[in-house]
C-alpha cells in the first residue's frame, strides 16, 4: 500500500513540475520520461536478471518507428500505435534473447552492440526498410488522435507528458512489486548463479526470454511515444551512442534501483538541453561555449568516478546513506529499526 501511495505522490508532484515552463522544457520533461523508460528497461534486464544489453535504444527505436508507421501509415489511434510499438519491441526482445540463452557477460555485450549497430546503420537508414522507417524524412506525426482526441504535438506536449508519466509510475510500481515477489526472486537467482537457478527448478529459457521481452517492451513503450512528443521519428535519437549512454547512465545512477531510472531520465534529457541553451556566453570577459559534447564527456567521467567510488550507483549510495542515518536515528531513539 505504501508503494501505491508513493507512486501516487510522485505522480502528482512530477506532473506539476513542467507547468509554467516554456515549450522547450515541456519537451525535455516528456523526453525525460521516454529516456527513463529506456533506463527502467535496463533495471529489469541488468539490475534484476544480470543480462547485459547494449541495444536498448534499438528497442526504443523499433517502438518509435512502429508507432510512427501505425499513425502516419495506417492512421491508427495513438493508443493502438503504442500497443503495436510495445508488441514489436517485445518480439524483437525475445529474438535478441535467443542468443542470450547461450552467451553471457561480455560476449553478450558485444553481440548486443552488434545488433545495435545493424539497426543503426541498416534497418533505420537503408532503402530496403523504407516501408518501416518512412524513408529519410521519417514519419511525420502531426495529426495523431488519442482516445479519439486530436493530439497536436506542439500544443499537447503537456498531455503527452502526463500520459507518459502516469504509465511510468504504473510500470515502476509493477517493477518494484516484481522485485520482491517469487518471479522477481527467480530472475535475481539467474543473476547470481544461473547454474543454481536451473538446478533449483527455474526454467532458464523461459525466464531469460521473458526478461528480454519485457525489458524490450518497456523500452519500446517509452520509444513509441517519441513520435507524438517530437512530431517525427529519425534514426539519430536511437543510434548506437544512445544505447551506450543508456548503459552508462543506468549504471551511473544505480542499475538495481527503479527510482534511479527516473533520475537518469531527467539527467539524460534536461542536462544537455540546459547546456546547449545556457552553455554559451561570456564569463570574466572570456567567451565560452559549452556544447552537447561536454555532456557526453561528463557522463563518461562521472561513470568512471562512480564505478571506482560508489559501486552501487548514485541512487544506491544515497539510499544506503539514508538507511544508515535512519537506523542511527532509530538506535538513538532506543528502538530497533529494521534495515532491509
Amino acid at each position: 500500500m505504501f508503494r501505491v501511495l508513493a507512486a501516487l505522490v510522485a505522480f502528482t508532484v512530477l506532473a506539476r513540475i513542467p507547468v509554467g515552463f516554456d515549450v522547450g522544457f515541456k519537451f525535455d520533461a516528456a523526453l525525460a520520461v521516454i529516456w527513463a523508460f529506456g533506463l527502467l528497461s535496463l533495471v529489469l534486464l541488468t539490475g534484476y536478471v544480470g543480462q547485459i544489453s547494449l541495444c536498448q535504444a534499438t528497442f526504443a527505436g523499433v517502438g518509435a518507428y512502429t508507432a510512427g508507421l501505425m499513425v502516419a501509415g495506417f492512421h491508427a489511434d495513438y493508443l493502438v500505435a503504442v500497443v503495436a510499438g510495445v508488441a514489436a519491441a517485445f518480439v524483437l526482445g525475445v529474438i535478441v534473447g535467443i542468443p542470450a540463452l547461450r552467451l553471457r557477460g561480455i560476449t553478450l555485450a558485444i553481440v548486443t552492440l552488434g545488433i545495435a549497430l545493424v539497426f543503426d546503420r541498416y534497418v533505420f537508414q537503408d532503402h530496403a526498410f523504407e516501408w518501416f522507417t518512412g524513408g529519410t524524412a521519417g514519419w511525420r506525426v502531426d495529426q495523431a488522435t488519442m482516445f479519439g482526441l486530436q493530439m497536436d504535438s506542439s500544443k499537447h506536449l503537456m498531455a503527452a507528458y502526463i500520459v507518459l508519466l502516469a504509465l511510468f509510475c504504473v510500470v515502476a510500481l509493477l517493477m518494484v512489486n516484481l522485485h520482491d515477489s517469487g518471479a522477481g526472486r527467480r530472475l535475481r537467482a539467474i543473476r547470481d548463479s544461473e547454474l543454481a537457478a536451473a538446478t533449483m527448478g527455474v526454467n532458464l529459457t523461459r525466464y531469460k526470454l521473458l526478461a528480454f521481452g519485457m525489458s524490450a517492451a518497456i523500452a519500446g513503450l517509452g520509444g513509441s511515444f517519441y513520435p507524438l512528443v517530437a512530431g517525427s521519428v529519425s534514426p539519430q535519437p536511437f543510434w548506437l551512442f544512445t544505447s551506450l549512454q543508456f548503459a552508462a547512465i543506468a549504471v551511473l545512477m544505480g542499475v538495481r534501483y527503479v527510482p534511479a531510472a527516473a533520475l537518469g531520465g531527467v539527467f539524460m534529457a534536461v542536462v544537455p538541453d540546459v547546456l546547449t541553451r545556457f552553455g554559451h556566453g561570456t564569463f570574466m570577459g572570456r567567451a565560452y561555449d559549452i556544447s552537447y559534447d561536454w555532456f557526453q564527456i561528463a557522463v563518461g567521467v562521472l561513470l568512471i568516478v562512480q564505478l571506482i567510488a560508489l559501486p552501487d550507483g548514485v541512487w544506491g549510495d544515497l539510499r544506503a546513506r539514508a538507511l544508515h542515518a535512519w537506523s542511527a536515528a532509530g538506535a538513538l531513539g532506543g528502538r530497533k529499526v529494521k534495515v532491509a
Partner: peptide, 28 residues
C-alpha cells in the same frame, strides 16, 4: 553457488515457488 546478493530466506524461497503455479504478472 548460493545467490549471494539475496537473503538466506529468499534463497530458500526460490526453489519453493519455482515449483509452484505463480506467474510473473500476478506477482507484479
Amino acid at each position: 553457488q548460493l545467490w549471494g546478493s539475496m537473503t538466506v530466506e529468499e534463497n530458500l524461497m526460490v526453489p519453493m515457488d519455482a515449483l509452484g503455479r505463480r506467474n510473473t504478472f500476478s506477482d507484479a
